[in-house]
Amino acid sequence: MSTDDTTASEPTPDVARLESRVEELEAELAAVKDDVGDDPKKMVIIATKGTLDMAYPPLILASTAAAFGYDVTVFHTFWGLEILHEDHSSDLQLSAVGNPNMPMPNAIAALPGMDAMTTRMMRKRIADNDVATVEELIQMSLDTGVDLQACQMTIDLLDYDEDDFYDGVTTGVGAASAFQEMVEADIQLLV
């Protein structure tokens, strides 16, 4: 009984110190919440492949994330550049070789003309199933504010010119800028 009295009636200096510390932390937390609330979430995709099938995942995810209000960057490097190349993007190929999902053995898939045939079949399926073309997805990504970037080092390596890419594509960027964006991003994907 006597102990109860002591704790209730005499707040020690420690309590006062803790109370002011709690206030400080609450203010800090509110500031952090403000910060988080202001910035849109961010996604960065590194697109490294240039085959017909591998062009789709980065573009579909990018435009979808943009619809969800995300700030999206797709950094295209190596064969991923083909997706952004104005003359090549409509002519991306699908290889039948080395793909165990193809209904033919590699020995047959490697025959001349098989890649072209596989690609033709895939394009027909894409059209029959109302799936958008690669060009449509690029246009939609640009329209929804996705930053499509073409890696400068691989532009030079593959002997491309900055004018080879769609209008709106960002050039003159490299690994450092991609890395910086990845550091700040909520989602980072390598495709």
Partner: peptide, 12 residues
């Protein structure tokens, strides 16, 4: 139209 167009165009 197929994925992802319905949701992206809805947003627009």
């Amino acid at each position: 139209e197929n994925c992802p167009m319905p949701v992206v165009k809805t947003k627009q």
